[in-house]
Nucleic acid binder design. Structure first.
Lengths: 110, 110
DNA sequence: TTGGAATGGCTAATATTCTGGTCATTAATT
DNA sequence: AATTAATGACCAGAATATTAGCCATTCCAA
């Protein structure tokens, strides 16, 4: 019995795309499912779910496998991920730390 | 007791970055944690884990929340995700369907 | 300054995933 | 064509995530 949760089309497509990219990366490296699963320290069944774009896999395993086959997360070719994290944190720091149910209309045009 | 799994630095940073982007997107929209959690149909505790970049969250929930706050997955601004999926599948179709332990050296320079 | 809401962190109970195994089918190599 | 490994799919048990609730703390708004 599969989970009865509703996912947006966008989120689902993103998961499918992630799976395809991983499968593509694996095949380019001529790795079998078992081979990649062993490298990632996961079972072959789990890898299959990931490559099939199932929403139930944990993000840690998905990202780990993606990293192993060279899928670029966030397309960050120029900057290292850590720089992106810094930048995101800088932006967050500029915003109020807590959101209170506001009465005033706020113009949020970034 | 936290899970005893080893993750690559790259995968961990990607998860953290994803969490930061979500938190940033949420704050820009002036949504509280509870507000976003309700929209996504998840608990506030889970949302906190996602925003903290914990590797244990399910990719379905992470992508769903990301979509809700407008985080661009795969930076696909030009092409829709579905087009990317097609392209990935086309590339996979060109490769052999199964990988057998090969004797010959293959030049795989894409 | 103060009241109240948002956040951070914890717990036990429940729900779900991950694993390791098996089996059938298919494709690559000889 | 035959052989054999890779893939696809399923299962029960073990491991883990998710939830709902609670409390303490912090910060925004009045």
């Amino acid at each position: 019995m599969a989970k009865q949760r509703a996912y947006s089309k966008y989120a689902q497509e993103a998961a499918v795309l992630m799976g395809e990219q991983i499968k593509l990366g694996r095949k380019r490296r001529q790795w079998t499912e078992k081979n990649l699963a062993d490298r990632a320290g996961i079972s072959r069944a789990t890898l299959q779910k990931i490559e099939n774009g199932e929403m139930s896999s944990t993000i840690g395993l998905v990202f780990e496998v993606a990293a192993l086959v060279g899928v670029k997360l966030f397309e960050s070719e120029k900057l290292p991920l850590s720089k992106h994290i810094e930048q995101a944190r800088d932006k967050i720091a500029l915003l109020p730390q807590r959101i209170k149910a506001t009465k005033k209309v706020v113009h949020d045009d970034f």
